[in-house]
């Protein structure tokens, strides 16, 4: 009996490790090749490099204009996160905890977004942005990304806010507090876990965003890291400079990896929230 168990465990673990390998192996391979020279890579992709070529990373940083792209990404992601997080939280408070006329109508219109596939309106959205003079501008992109309603975020934040007892709020009002004070001093501190979850999701979303920056930014000086990597990859067809692109990919992965390591618990918990909601 015991032996049978062990045998089963070996098979089970074997399958799990196999999938793990499909993730570690390609990523490890890219890291490994990024430390070689191009001739070494072309000669034999398995051979060890004679000397670790950390210079590839400096070259990638310069060639792909990572400094500028990182600043652009920081501006876009940071701006969208701060503005978006502030408005989403405020909005969730107003929509879940304050009774007012027309609330049902607003909720109904927001719920409609669940039925809109999004990409069918790419063209008119572009025209609207163009008419407002918001194309080819990082600030325009920030406005597009931070102003809007996302049912998923409203649900997460609303969930936390609904669990705050009404009495806490009411007694604050009796003491003469305004809605702003209640929002800053009571709602925000008590829904911090929800806010952090939404912040992480927004970071991953914005950092990984490709389509909107690709559509709206035409000036190479304004490219975010994602668009920059896309262009670098396109140029690779002509330059055949593999090792530098390998290094570039690793650099582009670092912010994701950092956030993942620091916020792993939050991210895994957030993934479950997604399933509850669907």
């Amino acid at each position: 009996m015991k032996e049978k168990r062990n045998f089963k465990d070996i098979i089970f673990r074997g399958i799990l490790y196999l999938w793990g390998l499909t993730i570690i192996f390609p990523l490890g391979w890219v890291l490994f090749e990024s430390l070689k020279t191009n001739p070494e890579f072309f000669a034999n992709i398995w051979a060890l490099p004679e000397k670790l070529q950390f210079g590839n990373y400096i070259k990638a940083w310069k060639e792909y204009n990572f400094g500028k792209a990182l600043l652009n990404t920081l501006y876009y992601v940071g701006g969208s996160m701060i503005l978006g997080l502030f408005f989403t939280t405020l909005n969730a408070y107003a929509l879940t905890r304050i009774e007012f006329k027309g609330r049902q109508l607003i909720w109904g219109l927001i719920m409609m977004s669940l039925f809109l596939p999004g990409i069918n309106a790419l063209v008119p959205q572009y025209v609207v942005m163009r008419d407002l003079g918001l194309t080819n501008s990082l600030s325009g992109l920030v406005l597009l990304s931070s102003l809007g309603e996302t049912v998923f975020y409203l649900m997460i934040l609303g969930g936390f806010m609904k669990s705050i007892p009404k009495e806490v709020e009411e007694s604050a009002f009796l003491d003469g507090a305004s809605h702003w004070q209640v929002f800053w001093r009571i709602i925000i501190p008590l829904s911090t876990p929800g806010i952090v979850t939404v912040a992480i999701f927004k970071f991953i979303d914005f950092y990984n965003a490709f389509l909107s920056p690709f559509i709206y930014l035409s000036d190479p000086d304004k490219y975010t890291i994602g668009v920059q990597m896309y262009q670098a990859n396109k140029l690779m067809e002509y330059s055949a400079d593999w090792v530098t692109l390998f290094a570039g990919i690793i650099i582009a992965m670092i912010p994701s990896l950092a956030v993942f390591i620091f916020f792993q618990k939050w991210i895994l918990k957030g993934a479950t929230l997604g399933s509850v909601k669907g």
Partner: peptide, 16 residues
Amino acid sequence: PFGGYLLFTLYPNILS
């Protein structure tokens, strides 16, 4: 946020 949603999401959908 609601204005942004109307302007950048609902309106383009109708416009399309």
